[in-house]
Computed example of a mutant assay.
Amino acid sequence: MASGYCDDHLHLLACAAARGSVDVRDAVTVDELLATILRAVDAVVAARHRSSWLRVWGYDDALLAERRHPTVAELDTVTERVPTVLHHVTGHVTVVNTAAGRALGLASGDVLVERHDLLAAVPRPDRGEIVAGVTEVLHGLADAGISACTDATHTNDLTALELLAEASAGEPAVDVTAMVGADQLDSLEGLVFGDAVPPSGTAADEVRVRIGHAKIMPPHDDDSAIADLVATARAHRFPVAVHVMDIDTLQATLDALEAHPPLPAEMASSAPVRIEPDRIEPDRIEHCALALPEQLDRIARLGITVVTQPSFVTRRAQKYREQLSPTEQAWLWPLASLLRRGIRVTLSSDAPTVPPDPAEWIEAAACRDLAPAERIDPERARELCLADR
């Protein structure tokens, strides 16, 4: 087991893409955001690369003064005919200008939520650039004292895992576990949970990427799909990790996990899983941003691990105060409540949304203002970040 910190939930390819994008995280108004994009467009036009696509990343509608997404019409005023894709800091929402929308076959100016199927058509850097970018991200993790990480991207398939394996060969100080989308498990071609994914020409003892949980991202506003995705993962003998940001999704997730329990240990030897029975991982809930006390009780009974990001409660405190009632605020990003119930908890960043900085997670866990009853001791918080715990 690696020594050092573990960032147990991040997105390596998204981190690399963010590094190569126009960064608008510092914009506090829509006008400031548009001004930053205009400067980038001017550079594209000056370089006579009008056919180039412009990728912009990092805005948060909840933190802009206007409390809204930029519109397609606003993007059009500063992007001319340069196809432009504006990504929310979370990666779950996108706005594209008319030129990009036309190229992607869109007939409207709607904000895109979780439309990775459409965005897959946006031109990408070549494989070598992507691999180099991910390796640079891994270098940054190593510099931050992080020796292990979990890529929790729900679109991961075998191609993505092989790319991560190639990139990780350039930074042997960081061990990578990569989840696979629950709807992408057929792409693994015989590889299973716990298997290594070596880049070509790499010795087995140099492997730094292993296959992790089946990741479930509930379709937007449709939690009914969770149970079917859990059943799919069980058919492949995978534990699951479910993206959970609200009470309703948590309820649907707990119902699905109860209806489709993990593979019993006594069946492991006959199942096509090449790991020892005592190493079968529990299911995971990613984020657990809002939870009722009785739901936390169910998490404990089911033996589920919670992988959470305390930085969200400090970075988005203003949003939560504006949008949640005092009662809901008390249920926000539980931490102490999880630990009191004996639930296994790990801390993480969700990078690139939040920087992969364990010192920040520890401070947020210990010093949060919202729901202060959920604070924990700094040393306990540090233990929840360790790779070898």
Rank of each mutant, 00 (worst) to 15 (best):
L118Q: 04
S270H: 13
I275G: 02
A142K: 09
P358T: 12
V82Y: 01
D255S: 10
A121Y: 06
L106W: 07
D76P: 00
H236S: 06
L112S: 06
T90H: 01
F312Y: 13
R39N: 04
P293V: 04
A259C: 01
G105I: 04
A231M: 09
R210N: 03
L302F: 02
V244M: 12
A268V: 15
S21L: 04
D297W: 03
M245H: 10
A366S: 15
L104Q: 03
C367D: 09
V207Q: 11
E383M: 10
D151K: 08
E74I: 11
H49V: 01
R39S: 14
V137S: 11
D151R: 02
R315F: 00
A214T: 15
L141Y: 15
Q295P: 02
S224L: 06
G140E: 10
D246P: 04
T232D: 13
D143W: 03
L188R: 02
A35E: 14
S108D: 11
I304R: 02
D23Q: 06
E363R: 15
A46S: 13
V230R: 03
R237C: 14
L290I: 02
R127E: 08
Q329F: 05
E276I: 03
R25E: 14
C149A: 12
A366G: 12
E206N: 11
M217N: 08
C288W: 01
A359F: 05
Q295W: 05
A265I: 14
L138F: 05
A366M: 12
A43M: 03
V307D: 02
S187D: 06
P218C: 11
R55E: 08
T177R: 06
A225C: 05
R274E: 07
D126E: 11
S21V: 08
G133S: 12
R210C: 04
Q309H: 06
M245A: 14
I362A: 03
T253N: 02
G145W: 12
E74H: 13
E328C: 01
A107W: 05
V242Q: 09
L34H: 12
H92I: 03
R237L: 08
S52E: 11
A107P: 00
Y5E: 09
W53F: 03
C367V: 07
L161P: 06
G109Q: 06
D110N: 09
L13Q: 11
A235W: 07
I299Y: 00
V354P: 00
L63C: 08
A99E: 13
A241W: 01
A167S: 12
R39E: 15
P239I: 09
R315K: 13
W333T: 01
L335W: 10
D388K: 06
R340N: 12
R316Q: 10
R50Q: 07
M179F: 00
R279Q: 11
A265V: 13
V197Q: 08
A387R: 07
L332H: 02
A2Y: 05
E66L: 04
R380P: 00
A364V: 04
G212N: 07
D283R: 05
G190E: 04
S349M: 09
A366Y: 10
D246H: 13
L384C: 14
P277G: 07
V131M: 07
T159K: 11
W333Y: 15
R234Y: 05
S348Q: 09
A291P: 00
V122L: 08
T327N: 06
T308P: 00
V28F: 05
L10R: 08
W53Y: 08
R279K: 13
